[in-house]
Design a binder for these strands. Structure first.
Lengths: 342, 342
DNA sequence: GTGGGTTACGTCAACGTTGACGTAGGAGGA
DNA sequence: TCCTCCTACGTCAACGTTGACGTAACCCAC
């Protein structure tokens, strides 16, 4: 205990004194390095145990030549969003296999906050970062990358060169969804999307356009609503669609919270069994609603796993060209996307 | 760059050399300490900027007398569970206000994994921990606590003395739910619970018993199913209830995944509009199902906030007696809990 | 002009650990 | 016997930073 009554953690010095060996020998024993006789190993182990000694990773990483902190940073948009949470969990699992811990943060899609968090992580000398980049503001990330920090972007690709990324088949899957709706006779298919600054939103919108084109449908601007942040905005926007003279017979919602908002609007007007709906991103209980919600399901565990694997490869010194992994999403038919045009 | 082509982070030494001052003066400028003239401050700032200098928090915390790493550990059961994710997010928000980052981990309700993670955190010298303790195995936590690590338990109270905790009104709210069902005429109210080793499960079961007693109902053992881990087990268990000669007319499900499983069973038998259901823990979209699911909603942000505040108080040296905060849950009426007995 | 205080620096050692290197003692071969 | 090599230790310095303390220069009052 020191003067403030705080117990001091014991150090190699303490263990060395008790075992009557040098600090360096303790270091050898603790790290299972050769150069310590069996008898000494025993004595040191016993001393360490009796003092409750635990190595100080910060001191060790400061001194060691590899400088590893055995910690990576994971910066997502909102850790409480089910998508982000599942991603974090997948990354954490892979990290654990490498004896690495995860420093997690929510950027809230705020460029300043993202920059601040990146600095915070750098200050703690994390070995690498997995980042869901804030839309349109990647200069802070690029600077960090240029300093040599291993970095992988998830969900959204880098706007600069030399960085790995893992994304979903946003465009292709969106096109597939729209074609599916068109094949059921829908001609007025609405698009509801998240903030336009997000790359995923743009891609999904492009896929929507491609789908319309492939199906021989023309784009009706009045059926497109973008920049919807959160379920509330989505609900309000969806509601206005049904005041049109020619309202949509099908909706394609390009993000999970937007899907939820649109569903609320449909229900409020008792349209949920008449208007078709396909959403991007699966969510819990989508199958238990009536009708079940047809979605494009991203393979979130695969996204997280791949992202983690890429950072760890880089941390291990992989110098090959940047990888841009794309994980396919699947169209899950549950009913809402199978409502025919009326 | 060193021999491996890895750029070395610049240090105070580099900045000092460039600004032609001593390292100590750089330290003073970086930390906004007095004792540096305005001209020197400018020179040092410019040098630091041009070198892209960023302080090394690990070195700094090693040397400083307070030893703070500006990092706390948060150990939950499963970061991808919506409840855990919301909790993490709430803790993270409070941590950020203290310029503290969060090391997050999932214990998966495995005592060995929990112990390993606690050691991992300790090795990184976190300033404190917020832990959702694994059911029935708290000795590792107790040891850590006894070493002086600030620790707060969330969701489940400590089984040892001297540690703060934040929990919900598990028992009282469960009783309230059962009484609510009884007031609608239900006499055969079933209990479906998570693993019995969990304190929350036990409390909720006790609340159930109290509710029955207050309502003048006798416990029917055949209506009680416990140790249901995950929606699958819950669904199977719920299904068997309806093969009884006298099946329940109402269900009280004591955990969110159990609620989901039970709902699936009800739907499979088309009973979801006939059998009443109240679940512990709210979940997204509970209001959009038909009927809406009546739940006991925990105030997750308040739980997380309070837990974070308690650790930070302890980290700041608060030596007062342990606090056991209890955050009230609310009964949210949505329909499923208002189905009368038939 | 001298004493006392303040300001703006600098020097040194230490936090806990590990890499580089030194050394005593024994084994083994010529 | 002497030389070499190996094993099992030890010593020393350094990682990047900060606390303790030293000191030169200057200000102000008496």
């Amino acid at each position: 205990m020191d003067s403030r009554g705080v117990r001091r953690e014991s150090t190699m010095r303490d263990v060395a004194a008790l075992a009557k060996v040098s600090i360096k020998t303790v270091s050898r024993v603790i790290n299972d390095l050769p150069g310590a006789g069996p008898e000494v190993v025993e004595r040191v182990r016993a001393a360490a145990l009796s003092l409750g000694y635990r190595p100080n990773l910060t001191a060790s990483s400061l001194r060691r030549s590899d400088r590893r902190s055995a910690t990576i940073g994971v910066l997502l948009e909102d850790l409480s969003n089910p998508f982000d949470a599942a991603l974090l969990r997948a990354i954490e699992d892979r990290a654990r296999q490498n004896d690495v811990l995860v420093l997690a943060g929510s950027s809230e899609d705020d460029p300043d906050l993202q920059r601040e968090l990146v600095t915070s992580l750098a200050t703690r000398r994390v070995d690498g970062m997995v980042v869901m980049a804030v839309g349109g503001h990647q200069d802070g990330l690029q600077q960090e990358r240029e300093r040599g920090t291993p970095m992988v972007l998830v969900d959204r690709p880098p706007m600069f060169d030399g960085t790995d990324s893992v994304t979903t088949t946003n465009r292709d899957s969106s096109r597939e969804a729209v074609l599916h709706l068109a094949s059921l006779g829908h001609r007025r298919i609405s698009f509801l999307g998240d903030r336009k600054t997000l790359w995923t939103s743009q891609e999904r919108y492009t896929g929507y356009l491609e789908g319309l084109a492939h199906a021989g449908l023309t784009l009706r601007e009045e059926l497109v609503r973008t920049d919807l942040h959160g379920p509330g905005a989505a609900e309000a926007a969806a509601a206005t669609l049904f005041d049109l003279d020619e309202p949509p017979t099908a909706l394609f919602t390009a993000q999970n919270l937007v899907t939820v908002g649109a569903m609320r609007a449909l229900r409020a007007r008792e349209l949920h069994r008449r208007v078709a709906l396909i959403g991007f991103d699966d969510f819990p209980l989508a199958d238990m609603l009536e009708p079940g919600v047809t979605v494009l399901r991203q393979d979130v565990p695969a996204l997280g796993r791949k992202a983690a694997e890429l950072v760890f490869d880089r941390i291990r010194g992989d110098k090959s060209a940047p990888t841009h992994a794309v994980v396919p999403a699947t169209l899950v038919h549950r009913g809402s996307g199978e409502i025919p045009s009326h």
